[in-house]
Amino acid sequence: MTYCVAMRLNSGLVFLSDSRTNAGVDHIGTFRKMSVYENPGDRVMVLMTAGNLSISQSIRQMLTERTNAEGRSIWTATSMYEAAQILGDAIRAVHDREAAELNKFGIDFNVSIIFGGQIRGERCRLFQMYSAGNFIESHDENTYFQIGESKYGKPIIDRVVTPQTSLDEAAKCALISMDSTLKSNISVGLPLDLLVYESEDLAVTRFVTIDEQNQYFQMIRRSWGSQLRRVFEAIDDPVWDALPEDTLNVLSTASDISEPVRVPPPNGMARGVQTGPRQILAEQDGDVGQAG
């Protein structure tokens, strides 16, 4: 599996990918998931993939050769939208060629792609591509895309990143998102590829491959965990069975009448007789079960 994240900001784009393709007791594969298509002064486009590696590699190769009905390729497309359409056509072409044969071996046509960049004359744009070749585009309401093992690194991005976020802050947030994913999922692993693109540069100026010895990422891993523990410990414990006017952080009050849904033990196994509302609730649950 893998984890890739990209962010579209007012000031540019941030791309981050891991490089693990398989995880097991004795088999860990490493393949870089990020590809850069660059013609300095004219265009910079970045492709990140997740899913079946052979499919991803076929799509990546076909993208460099594919032309549309007007004879344009990603190198001559007049907009990122047109380039994304050419990529979608490449995905469908690989599907037409390979999906049926893969299916004979029980293998699904599974690929997810993030594609973004800038072509001279228009703004930075970011797209998420699907296995059918269709895609959606990032807007201010949705400033980032993730593919692969996305759930672990999503909360920090949701809380921090807006279109106004600076590129360096967004890169920091992406690395924290990746660290959270690395901490919780063995199928994601180092090294990482990080590319930070400033709008109108039309060239790659900030790129780094991050391994275990990277000084900044080591600091992220140490400080993020310790800061989380510090914030957690600073939050007060809940107070039970108290009045809100008597103390702060009341979780429940003495007047609360909420009760859990209780399942009574089988006949003859009860160790004591309940009284009051709890006994009534248990009896009601028993009646419902019998009626069903």
Rank of each mutant, 00 (worst) to 15 (best):
V204Q: 01
S258D: 13
T205L: 06
V263W: 13
R229N: 07
R206A: 06
W240F: 11
I156M: 02
V188P: 03
T162N: 07
S199R: 08
V239K: 04
G225C: 14
I156W: 00
I257Q: 13
A270Y: 12
L192A: 02
R206Y: 05
I257A: 08
N214T: 02
R206V: 00
C173K: 02
G189E: 01
T165E: 01
L248W: 08
Y216K: 08
I257H: 10
V231L: 10
T205R: 03
I156Y: 03
Y197Q: 04
E233Y: 10
R159L: 11
P191F: 03
D211W: 01
I157C: 03
I220A: 06
Q164T: 07
S226E: 15
D179F: 09
V208K: 09
E200W: 09
P264W: 13
L192M: 03
S166K: 07
G189K: 01
E259Q: 15
I156G: 00
R206C: 03
F217K: 00
F232S: 08
S226M: 11
K172D: 05
S258T: 11
S252K: 06
N185P: 05
A171M: 02
N185H: 09
T253P: 03
S226V: 13
S252P: 03
P265G: 10
D237I: 04
A174W: 00
L251G: 04
L228P: 05
V160K: 07
E200D: 14
V261H: 14
I210A: 00
L175F: 07
M178A: 12
N185C: 09
P264K: 15
T181K: 03
P238N: 10
E212I: 11
T253S: 13
F217G: 01
W224F: 12
I257E: 12
P238S: 12
Y197T: 02
Q215R: 05
S177Q: 02
E212V: 10
E245C: 10
R222Y: 13
K183H: 12
S252A: 06
